[in-house]
Simulated scan of single mutants.
Amino acid sequence: MQPSPERRAERIGVIWLLADMTLISAMAALVKMEGAQYPAIQLVFLRSVVGVVIILPLVWRHRREIRHTRHTGRHIFRITCNALALTGNFAALAALPLALVSAIGFTRPLVVMLLAVLLLGERISTIRWLGAALGLAGVLVMVAPGHVPLDPGLAAAFASVLFGSLAVVQTRALKDENTTVLMVFYTVGLSLISAVPAAMTWQPVQPADWAPLLAIGILAQLGQYCFLRAYQTAQANVLAPFGYLSIIFATATGYLLFGEVPRLTTMAGVLVILLSLHITRLLDNRRG
């Protein structure tokens, strides 16, 4: 029996999302290597500028669609949400342990599901809610955040999750928009927002570092394209649980490139996440 068009679209969307995770993992490895020498905001600015240069030919080719977009307000809202999410993430990283920030970040799929219902009218099955909750439990097993006092850093971390989730939902709402238009608004907007703080903290770039710094921008732009195609192809509530897989990509990258041996709790959490995804898809396919 051939899968329905909706099922095929979901599978293609997942493939696009996995491609995004692969590219972003490679980019994260380069950022980790270069981050010891250059401020994070400088890396963000260089990444976005490289992205602008890469998409210039596409900007010219699709200039009519960009000029005549009917969703300017929604684009601005999405970019604003992205900017607030990045700001919150930077503030949280400065105030909280990295493991805790990562744990809070992986609550995003649950928030995306809720916002997809509230803002997009998408329907979410009980099976997917249970699968997402089980995946979240796996993340908590891995990072074991423990007791955390309420402070501005914690608020910033949750604000990052909220605004990042809003940006994801807005991407889904713009599924009929030209992908190049989405990339242009995001990339140019990020460049403008990061320009001033990057200039204030700028460190001279050594000649040997230009190649990896440029690669960061290239990988980020390719990853963004895959991410946009994923959410234009499949519904947000279908893709959201697969967001948990990014921690597996991060764990593998850390082990292979930096010798970061995962703890037993990390491996246990990975198994829980994989189990949750498998059970969710298996039961959901039976329902369909």
Results as ranks from 00 to 15, higher is better:
200 M>I: 14
168 V>T: 14
224 Q>F: 11
171 T>V: 15
177 E>Y: 07
223 G>R: 10
169 V>G: 09
199 A>P: 04
217 G>E: 05
181 V>E: 09
164 G>M: 10
211 A>F: 12
167 A>S: 15
172 R>G: 09
191 S>I: 00
176 D>T: 11
213 L>M: 15
222 L>C: 15
170 Q>V: 15
175 K>N: 13
214 L>Q: 02
222 L>N: 02
208 A>V: 13
203 Q>H: 13
206 Q>H: 14
195 A>W: 00
219 L>K: 09
214 L>W: 03
190 L>W: 00
213 L>P: 02
174 L>M: 14
162 L>V: 13
169 V>I: 15
219 L>E: 06
172 R>F: 12
214 L>S: 08
177 E>N: 05
169 V>N: 11
190 L>G: 12
170 Q>P: 00
170 Q>D: 10
160 S>P: 05
213 L>S: 03
169 V>C: 06
207 P>V: 11
163 F>A: 06
191 S>C: 09
189 G>L: 00
187 T>E: 04
205 V>A: 07
164 G>R: 11
172 R>P: 13
223 G>I: 02
189 G>H: 00
184 V>H: 03
195 A>C: 12
190 L>S: 07
224 Q>S: 02
209 D>T: 06
213 L>A: 03
210 W>H: 07
208 A>T: 11
220 A>F: 13
176 D>K: 00
179 T>I: 12
222 L>D: 02
216 I>A: 09
193 I>D: 01
213 L>H: 10
178 N>F: 10
173 A>F: 07
203 Q>I: 14
219 L>F: 13
199 A>G: 10
196 V>A: 12
177 E>V: 12
185 F>P: 01
201 T>G: 01
201 T>A: 15
162 L>T: 12
179 T>R: 08
181 V>P: 05
184 V>M: 15
181 V>K: 07
162 L>F: 15
174 L>Y: 05
171 T>A: 13
211 A>T: 14
163 F>M: 13
185 F>Y: 15
205 V>R: 07
182 L>T: 11
162 L>W: 08
164 G>T: 04
187 T>Q: 09
170 Q>F: 09
207 P>H: 11
170 Q>A: 15
167 A>F: 08
194 S>W: 07
217 G>A: 11
199 A>R: 06
182 L>Q: 14
220 A>S: 15
194 S>F: 01
184 V>K: 00
205 V>H: 05
195 A>Y: 01
163 F>I: 00
191 S>A: 15
218 I>K: 03
166 L>A: 11
206 Q>K: 14
205 V>D: 01
215 A>D: 07
222 L>E: 05
199 A>L: 15
205 V>S: 03
173 A>D: 11
222 L>S: 10
209 D>F: 02
166 L>N: 04
161 V>S: 06
169 V>T: 10
179 T>M: 08
217 G>R: 08
179 T>S: 13
161 V>L: 07
167 A>Y: 08
221 Q>M: 14
216 I>S: 11
194 S>H: 08
187 T>A: 10
199 A>C: 04
188 V>K: 00
201 T>Y: 06
180 T>H: 05
222 L>A: 14
215 A>W: 12
164 G>I: 07
195 A>S: 12
181 V>H: 09
165 S>Q: 09
163 F>G: 02
176 D>P: 00
186 Y>P: 00
224 Q>P: 10
180 T>L: 04
202 W>H: 01
169 V>M: 10
211 A>P: 01
166 L>D: 03
222 L>T: 04
214 L>F: 13
